[in-house]
Amino acid sequence: MHNFKENAIKYFFMANGMLSIIILLGIFYLLLSRSLPALQNVGLTNFFAPGYWNPTAYTTPQYSILNLIKGTFMVGAGSLIFAVPLGVACATYLAEVAGAREREVLKPIIEILAGIPSVVLGFFGLVVVAPVIAELFGLNSGINALNGSILVGIMALPTIVSLAEDAISAVPQSYRHASLALGATKWQTILRITLPAALSGIIAASMLGMGRAVGETMTVLMATGNALAKPSSFFDSVRTLSANIAIEMGEVPVGSVHYHSLFFVGFVLFMITFIINLLADVIFQRYREEI
């Protein structure tokens, strides 16, 4: 009886584990099968042809997603420029400098940051951050890629901080002792020994943060202006893949070419985040072996 119960519980949890894999495959299949009609009607090359996304055009519809991909990467990379230095510095402080009590207070507060609804952050970006950006850089409008990058950076921060902190804490204590014994200061130890030793973990944390940033929708939708033109700098308005789906999915007639094209956009977005997360995982595994 007891064994039976143990086994039942074991298989139940195994089934739960399998479920997430089945869901992942299911989403992959759904996106691919729903985007096939678009590939037949529009053609793969037209999705990557020069031009811009405009399926509801007055004259001829266009389906180029190049500008959307560029916008997505700009916001994703831009957010890392903010979030990585800030996040790693914060993680280093938590892992190496802060006392136990400080850590107990700071960690939950940083995790609360992850709980801010993205629509609230987007509104904050639209009415608070955008005017500040416009003022600082002498622009007419601060509704641009930079605004989106800052806000998404804030969203990616908790992911980066907690994973980077884990990586730094996992560096064996003997490394630090050896360094200190050789006469290095605490600062030198952190900068030359601990951080380099945790580097692959920090990179993995950053990439997972980027995966989060690339898929973020609502904040970007509200803060970046969603213009369809090719962005040439961070001061230009951009539209990301995820924002594009959110904007158009609600109104599109089910079964139309436009509808299936949005599934293709979703498929591309899925592949991008999948590859980023996979790379992060590979780096993370390697880092585990190193330690």
């Binding site: 405009n54 004259t59 509200m222 213009a227 369809l228 033109a229």
Partner: peptide, 12 residues
């Protein structure tokens, strides 16, 4: 009676 410029910001 034509297409919007892609430079236009699309607001919610």
């Amino acid at each position: 009676q034509g297409d919007y410029t892609p430079q236009m910001r699309n607001m919610g």
